[in-house]
Amino acid sequence: MKKIFLKWYPVILAFLCLLYSVGLGLYGMTEEAQYSAHWPGTILLFAIAIRQRRTT
């Protein structure tokens, strides 16, 4: 279970951020939703960059 979590945590975190952004949009806070909408992509891009830099 731990091995699966360590592999997929960026995707899970990005999905939670996406839900947060959608929730803000549904509550009418559009500026905050637009700001937080960039978080999932950034998280996934950093995860890709970090995994490419690993030597193991």
Rank of each mutant, 00 (worst) to 15 (best):
M1G: 12
M1W: 15
K2N: 10
K2F: 10
K3I: 15
K3P: 07
I4Q: 11
I4S: 06
I4P: 08
I4Y: 14
F5I: 15
F5Q: 11
L6E: 11
L6D: 07
K7D: 01
K7Q: 07
K7I: 07
K7A: 11
K7Y: 09
W8P: 00
W8Q: 02
Y9Q: 13
Y9L: 15
Y9W: 15
P10Y: 09
P10N: 04
V11G: 02
V11F: 11
V11P: 04
I12Q: 06
I12A: 12
I12N: 10
L13W: 03
L13P: 00
L13T: 03
L13D: 02
A14F: 03
A14C: 01
A14W: 01
F15C: 02
F15Y: 07
L16P: 03
L16D: 01
L16S: 05
C17I: 06
L18T: 02
L18S: 02
L19P: 01
L19S: 05
L19I: 00
S21T: 07
V22M: 02
V22T: 09
V22F: 14
V22H: 07
V22L: 14
G23V: 00
G23L: 08
G23T: 01
L24N: 06
L24V: 00
L24T: 06
L24Q: 14
L24I: 03
G25Y: 03
G25A: 04
G25F: 03
G25P: 07
G25I: 02
G25T: 06
Y27G: 05
G28A: 10
G28N: 11
G28H: 12
M29F: 11
M29D: 01
M29T: 03
M29C: 00
T30K: 11
T30Q: 09
T30E: 04
E31I: 12
E31M: 14
E31N: 15
E32I: 03
A33N: 14
A33I: 09
Q34K: 15
Q34T: 14
Y35M: 14
Y35V: 15
Y35T: 15
Y35C: 10
Y35S: 12
S36V: 04
S36W: 07
S36C: 05
S36Q: 05
A37W: 09
A37T: 09
A37V: 03
W39S: 02
W39P: 01
W39K: 08
W39V: 15
P40K: 05
P40L: 01
G41M: 08
G41P: 08
G41V: 11
T42A: 12
T42C: 10
I43S: 10
I43N: 10
I43T: 06
I43Y: 11
I43A: 04
I43R: 06
L45H: 07
L45R: 10
F46Y: 14
F46K: 03
F46G: 07
F46H: 10
F46E: 00
A47E: 07
A47K: 11
I48Q: 13
I48P: 13
I48W: 15
A49Q: 08
I50E: 03
I50F: 05
R51S: 04
Q52I: 13
Q52G: 05
Q52V: 12
Q52T: 04
Q52N: 12
R53I: 04
R54G: 03
T55G: 11
T55C: 05
T55D: 04
T55S: 14
T56Q: 10
